[in-house]
């Protein structure tokens, strides 16, 4: 007899790390608490402490270091504009001047704290949530009292992002099979325009067929919720240590 794979019933993570053994609800609550504390933390020292806690969570989740760093880098590049302009736009004590623009110490600090908070939350979410099966996440949210409609909406969003991505892959393949190479020029721009248009049309049709297939198998607007076990000693222990370290982060900010 074929056993139902473990992650139908439990969250997944690399090699059953400590984080992977936690109840999904514990992970969701821990991530939410972390985000609130990271944003509320006063001063750069407290924010760096939060970053430290987040890094610790990543270690506990045994995330592959390369992936973590690559995602972190993507975030920093995304925020680069803010980080570079802040020192020059926030008024305050002059730190240095660059071609007639003055960078303020306050602006510099602001930029640093934005980077620290964003990186900390990003790392914590990666450690606690990103390593979890989406279905487990949906179930955890539903069992925490999030309306079933919202949990289902979230699951669908994740599912259809994947559909869009697959459809994009298929179309790109079809383009490459006919020797398309992106250049600068009308041909390329028009081809990309068609790609986006076709992507939307195909994805809508495909999602309609998937929805039909789901209805055929008795889907009536929400995923069946399995009994996913309950929080044990490990969860309480983790919760206590997590809360204590976050309290410490807040305490650092008040010093």
């Amino acid at each position: 007899m074929t056993p139902v794979p473990a992650h139908l019933l439990a969250p997944q993570g690399p090699a059953r790390s400590l984080v992977a053994r936690l109840d999904p609800r514990t992970r969701v609550l821990a991530a939410a608490l972390f985000a609130v504390v990271a944003v509320a933390a006063q001063g750069i020292m407290a924010q760096l402490a939060a970053l430290g806690v987040a890094a610790g969570l990543c270690l506990l989740a045994r995330l592959p270091m390369r992936t973590v760093l690559r995602r972190l880098l993507a975030l920093e590049v995304f925020m680069a504009l803010v980080l570079v302009t802040l020192p020059f736009t926030v008024p305050g004590q002059t730190l240095f001047t660059l071609g007639g623009l003055t960078a303020s110490a306050e602006g510099m600090e602001r930029a640093l704290s934005v980077a620290a908070i964003a990186s900390a939350v990003m790392l914590a979410v990666q450690a606690l949530l990103a390593s979890m099966e989406t279905v487990a996440l949906g179930h955890a949210l539903a069992r925490l009292g999030v309306p079933a409609r919202l949990a289902t909406l979230m699951l669908f969003t994740l599912r259809y992002v994947e559909v869009l991505h697959q459809e994009y892959g298929r179309l790109r393949l079809a383009m490459r099979a006919r020797a398309f190479r992106p250049r600068t020029g009308w041909h390329t721009w028009r081809a990309y325009g068609w790609l986006v248009g076709m992507l939307l049309v195909n994805s809508v049709e495909r999602s309609e067929r998937i929805h039909a297939a789901m209805r055929l198998r008795g889907f009536r607007g929400h995923y069946p919720i399995l009994d996913l076990g309950r929080a044990g000693g490990l969860d309480w222990g983790f919760g206590a240590v997590h809360t204590a370290s976050l309290a410490l982060v807040l305490a650092v900010g008040m010093m």
Partner: peptide
């Protein structure tokens, strides 16, 4: 491909029975 939408075979096959109210 229109029909398979769960990550693993067991989850996909279990989807119908679970919708029909089957227990784990």
């Amino acid at each position: 491909d229109d029909q398979l939408f769960c990550p693993t075979v067991a989850e996909d096959v279990a989807f119908g029975p679970l919708n029909l109210g089957a227990g784990r």
